[in-house]
Amino acid sequence: MVSLPASFARAFGQLGDPAILRVLGKTLAITLAVFAVLGLALWYALSSAIEGWGYSLGSEIGALVAVLLTALGGWLLFRLVALFVLQFFAGEVVEAVEARFYPEKAAQVRAIPIREEMQHAARGALRALAVNAIALPFALVLLVTGVGTAILFWAVNGWLLGRELQDMVWLRHRRSPDEKPPVGALQRFLLGGATAGLMFVPFLNLLAPVIGAASATHLVHRRREAASA
Rank of each mutant, 00 (worst) to 15 (best):
L72T: 12
V81D: 04
I20N: 04
T31V: 07
G54A: 06
T27K: 07
A36Q: 04
K26E: 07
L40K: 13
G62L: 07
F78N: 09
Y55W: 11
R79G: 13
E60D: 11
L15T: 11
L40P: 12
W53P: 09
V67Q: 09
V37I: 15
Y44M: 13
P18W: 06
Y55S: 01
L77N: 07
L38G: 08
T70E: 07
L21C: 09
T31N: 12
L76V: 15
T31Y: 03
G25Q: 02
S47W: 11
A36T: 15
G73M: 04
I20C: 01
A29Y: 06
L80C: 00
E51K: 06
A11M: 02
L32F: 14
W75R: 13
S59I: 12
A49K: 01
A82H: 06
V65C: 11
W53E: 13
L38Y: 09
G25C: 03
L24S: 02
W53V: 10
L72I: 13
L76T: 14
F35K: 03
G62C: 08
L24M: 06
S56A: 13
V81Q: 03
T27A: 09
T70S: 15
A63N: 03
A36F: 13
A63K: 01
I30T: 00
G54R: 02
L28P: 00
G74T: 05
L15G: 10
A41Q: 07
A66I: 08
E60R: 10
L46S: 07
L46E: 05
F35A: 00
E51Q: 14
G62T: 04
G16M: 12
A71N: 03
G74H: 03
G62S: 08
L46Q: 09
G73F: 09
F35I: 00
L21W: 10
G13R: 08
S59M: 10
L28D: 00
L42I: 12
A29L: 15
L40M: 15
F78P: 07
T31C: 06
A66M: 10
G13M: 10
G13N: 09
I61A: 14
L42C: 12
G39Y: 02
L38T: 02
T31G: 13
S59W: 14
V34E: 07
G62F: 04
F35Q: 03
W43S: 08
W75G: 14
A66T: 09
V37Q: 03
